[in-house]
Design a protein around this nucleic acid. Structure first.
Length: 556
RNA sequence: GUCCCAGUAGCUCAGUAGGAUAGAGCAACGGUCUUCUAAACCGUGGGUCGGAGGUUCGAAUCCUCUCUGGGACACCA
């Protein structure tokens, strides 16, 4: 438990005691004590709305109840400086700053571990994201999914969950056949022959480049191969090549996956057939019009879905079911899929399929990432792999930079539409908040380089109560918030809280920096205490930036 | 037609397990470097939280209806 949590828990316990002592409620019927941090400083360090909650049970006006609670409150125990009753019946607690200054040695000692908590209780979560078909380069939408998925995993792990990031490679379906045929066509064209890309094939530039490489490497020798073998060759070559590019893009974007899961491997290990059998056995399927259907409508889907088409082949849905079943079988308690908005229709049917297999659909969590609209020269740029005009993830990295892109994607709630103005991001990148946060870090580094005289091995021995200025208290409170920000962010799958927290912390730092001098030879004890504070802020900023995949530069 | 997301300051968006006077950045205006990085700080102005009802001590937040914008609704993946 973190220091701030300990303080809050103790305070809650004391409130409970006071309520019982005052005879306002039995210990058993006591509502949960809600202790919040007021926005307004004049409202104290912590506040509770207990009196309002008890108004009904005790049948008294809230302010009267608040008075009785305060009268029975044991102020000796904790480090409470002052208690006030305010507004409709809030009880505001003003604490001694000791618990705040205690944070500094704790943070310095924890180092890169600061911010961690066990609020996730080791729950195993598989987070699948990106999972783009290997049929072209990753584009802007994938970049958002990648940033969100990667950050989500890091936040979950920091908060005590066990999250595994995974990429599902769709290397088994029709799309891949289309890819092979498209490569073949481009290959023939590169050799100067007549060939046309099929209607649902891929027209991207990267396929042309791929074909050119084939010509360089193999000349026209591939034409002589029998068609089946040739297509198989193009397919494997295409998948390998494109997956290499995808992996490179993702790792350059600082996105990490524990596992690259192949769809083909599901077939090879009989997982698809097994999933199908399981559904049949449970009586969740039926035949109609020559196809095999799954009764997804029984579990809340709009209509039933086809598993096996009348031509005997599987729909994409069937291996996907096998894949999700496998995720549970590998021991994960919960599944999170980070999906593009175009997969919206997929949510109900996959949850239904999992329910049909006997899993709790509440453990299948689909996070829909809304569209990214790109604006360039004031015009909306349509994204499509097929047209070859898509803005790629690579271009994004080169144009706006990885730090800015990662921060930008993390800072907005992923279920809102995102307008990404490329011109603005490129031409006025200094206005990007990421630089504000990084600058705070760089400033501290720069100060600490000169601070050797004031540095102390054991911050606990310093006179930290000298840190009592308004700006210092602000900073300390922010530092103490970090673990609960991470925990809450994880619990709500709301990653945007972290960038927003970093911005606030940076703001407090800048404000402090401009108001006070840290390194002052005229006041050594205070300087030492402030150096320790700066170290704690630097650690916290760094840990937060790590979570969202943004670099912490020592110099800017 | 059904479903999902959004609508909060001029612009881009935070804030939604109900809390006190709704926030930030940008833009506008006015200040601050002989002092640890001015990519910063300090200040001013700017709001029917799309609209209407409801729930209650209390609603941007929860419920119902409604308007506007975006997206999804294949024996494609």
């Amino acid at each position: 438990m973190t220091i701030v949590e300990q303080v809050k828990e103790q305070l809650k316990e004391e409130i409970r005691e006071a309520v019982v002592k005052a005879g306002l409620a039995e210990a058993g019927q006591l509502p949960d004590v809600i202790l919040e941090t007021p926005k307004e400083k004049t409202h104290g360090d912590f506040a509770t709305n207990m009196a309002m909650q008890l108004a009904r049970i005790a049948r008294k006006p809230p302010r009267k109840i608040a008075e009785e609670i305060v009268d029975h409150f044991d102020t000796e125990k904790g480090s409470i400086r002052k208690i006030e009753i305010a507004g409709p019946g809030f009880i505001n607690f003003f604490l001694d700053n000791r618990y705040l200054t205690d944070l500094i040695p704790a943070i310095i000692q924890a180092g890169s571990a600061y911010g961690a908590s066990d609020s996730g209780a080791g729950k195993k979560i598989l987070v699948e994201f990106v999972s783009a078909n290997p049929t072209g380069s990753l584009h802007l939408g994938h970049a958002r999914g990648a940033a969100v998925g990667d950050t989500l995993c890091k936040i979950l792990n920091k908060a005590g969950y066990k999250a595994s990031p995974e990429y599902y490679i769709n290397d088994g379906g029709n799309q891949i056949m289309n890819l092979a045929v498209s490569i073949e066509a481009r290959y023939l064209q590169a050799l100067g022959r007549e060939a046309e890309i099929p209607e649902n094939g891929y027209h991207g530039k990267d396929i042309i480049e791929l074909a050119n490489q084939l010509v360089e490497k193999y000349g026209d020798t591939l034409i002589e191969k029998p068609e089946k073998e040739r297509i198989r060759f193009f397919r494997r070559f295409g998948v390998d090549h494109l997956m290499r590019g995808i992996k490179k893009d993702l790792s350059d974007f600082r996105v990490h996956f524990d596992c690259w899961y192949s769809e083909r491997s599901l077939y090879e290990r009989g997982k698809v057939a097994a999933a199908l059998d399981a559904l049949k056995e449970k009586g969740e399927t039926y035949s109609k019009d020559g196809a095999l259907w799954l009764k997804t409508s029984k579990y809340g889907d709009d209509k039933d879905r086809v598993l096996v088409k009348s031509d005997g082949t599987y729909t994409y849905f069937t291996p996907d079911i096998a894949y999700h079943k496998d995720k549970f079988e590998r021991g994960h308690d919960e599944l999170i899929d980070v999906l593009g908005a175009d997969h919206h229709g997929y949510v109900a049917r996959m949850k239904a399929a999992m329910q049909a297999l006997g899993y709790d659909p509440a453990h299948v969590n689909m996070q829909i990432i809304q569209l990214v609209n790109l604006f360039k020269d004031g015009e909306k740029v349509k994204m499509s792999k097929r047209t070859g005009k898509a803005v790629t993830m690579r271009e994004l990295m080169e144009d706006v930079g990885i730090d800015a892109a990662r921060y930008f994607f993390a800072m907005r709630s992923s279920d809102s539409h995102l307008d990404f103005d490329l011109d603005l991001a490129i031409s006025r990148s200094n206005e990007n908040p990421v630089y504000y946060v990084q600058y705070a870090f760089a400033r501290i580094c720069s100060m600490l380089k000169r601070a050797e005289v004031f540095d102390h091995d054991d911050p606990a021995k310093l006179d930290l109560k000298l840190l009592s200025g308004e700006k210092e208290i602000d900073l300390l409170k922010k530092l103490g918030d970090f673990p609960s920000v991470v925990a809450e962010s994880a619990a709500n799958l709301a990653i945007q809280h972290v960038p927003s927290y970093l911005f606030d912390l940076a703001s407090s730092l800048h404000s402090f920096y401009n108001a006070e001098k840290v390194l002052d030879e005229g006041n050594v004890p205070l300087s030492k205490a402030r150096v320790a504070l700066m170290k704690a802020v630097r650690i916290t900023l760094k840990n937060g930036m790590d979570l969202i995949g943004v670099n912490a530069p020592e110099k800017m």
